[in-house]
Design a protein around this nucleic acid. Structure first.
Lengths: 219, 219
DNA sequence: CAGCATCCGCTTTGATACTG
DNA sequence: CAGTATCAAAGCGGATGCTG
């Protein structure tokens, strides 16, 4: 990218990470940890391969990304964030917080990766009833299962099958996110293609910032 | 900007503010408050005028910027951030924090605006001796004077002449930022073109995160 | 003068094909 | 797997001109 030529911290940051695709490459490395070129491409649907190669070179030069030749039996190049690159996490976090309201607008052509959804939920969800015993919610949308575990005031979101979920949601990403965040009524979720297995009251355990007081109690 | 077509909060945020110049336009509106097209251009040296007009239209459509026709005697169009636009402040703040280390690399061709420097200092400076009576530092670099006021554990940075500064720094932006943040030794500042008027010990009152324990005490 | 729109040359990006 | 090569399309930068 051409420099903005400004003696300003924000402008200098954008000189490094302001290019198209650049922050999304950092996102993938932040979410996946050290990974191969192919893994990055899979997490960045639509990127031109020459562009990915070019961006990785630039990020390496800027000290944000490091490449290492993994020894056998892996025997491949791994890309990972440097310490300086890890420091971009707060930037990504604020971007996610700001972008969450935009997730409610439907756009069927969008690519979906469960790790993006899990990542966003990690920032947004809170335990709304810390005194009660732990609750586990499983989400089946996107390319992998998501386990939402609430207990003791904390919520953890992992990319994995839940062992014994109290409730399982299956269906399209948008209404599922709506239900988990407490923005879409559980009763109305069915008409949006969401299937609910287990105890729907477990969904009231977690919620996002904009959710009403006790959405699932409406049932 | 062409959409990334991803159902991801970060990608959707970048669909709105990821274009070249866009976040810097938001920066100017965040720093200046409601202002005219001309004021924006002055704060964005190098932007093509058609691009500024196009970005403002896009930001208006996205609900980030609003335009209002100011009544006489102003009689001009004012651009301002909407509530949604204000919510981008944390994103800019994290970007500034990440970009600060890049400010130490000299690039003489860079444009300088005192409000950019003041803004960055606001995020980085802390009062290192809250018990002592208030200290005022005046910076003369860039296009306006900057008043740094430390007292009671807080540091405020304003674009204004200080009334009775304990110390005044004049000179090029980079070494002045270095001295105030505690990264450049006061004794060495002179050789970088910095003139110090008043009591240099007042500079030890404030410092940035990376500063040694008591930089000015070396004198 | 403030607030744009138009035109044109250059750079960046996107899509696809190809390679060690 | 991890890229490079090629080329068309879109975006950007700079200059200029228009309008209230």
């Amino acid at each position: 990218m051409r420099s903005y030529d400004e003696y300003c911290a924000a402008a200098r940051a954008l000189d490094v990470v302001g290019d198209r695709w650049t922050l999304l490459i950092v996102r993938e490395l932040a979410l996946q940890g050290p990974c191969r070129y192919t893994d990055l491409r899979n997490g960045l649907p639509g990127i031109a391969t020459n562009l990915l190669a070019q961006r990785l070179r630039e990020l390496e030069r800027a000290g944000v990304v490091a490449r290492e030749e993994a020894p056998p039996p892996i025997a491949t190049t791994l890309f990972r964030l440097t310490a300086r690159g890890e420091e971009l996490r707060p930037v990504l976090a604020e971007l996610v917080r700001w972008g969450m309201p935009l997730m409610t607008e439907p756009r069927p052509a969008d690519a979906v990766r469960s790790r993006w959804l899990a990542w966003a939920l990690e920032f947004m969800l809170t335990d709304r009833d810390p005194a009660r015993p732990p609750t586990v919610i499983e989400l089946r949308t996107g390319d992998e299962q998501i386990a939402v575990e609430a207990g003791g005031g904390a919520v953890h979101v992992r990319l994995a099958r839940a062992e014994h979920p109290d409730v399982t949601l299956s269906g399209p990403p948008m209404p599922i996110m709506g239900v988990v965040l407490g923005l879409l009524d559980v009763a109305a979720a069915g008409s949006h293609g969401v299937t609910i297995d287990g105890d729907p009251r477990a969904l009231a355990r977690v919620g996002g910032p904009g959710a009403p007081a006790a959405p699932a109690d409406v049932i």
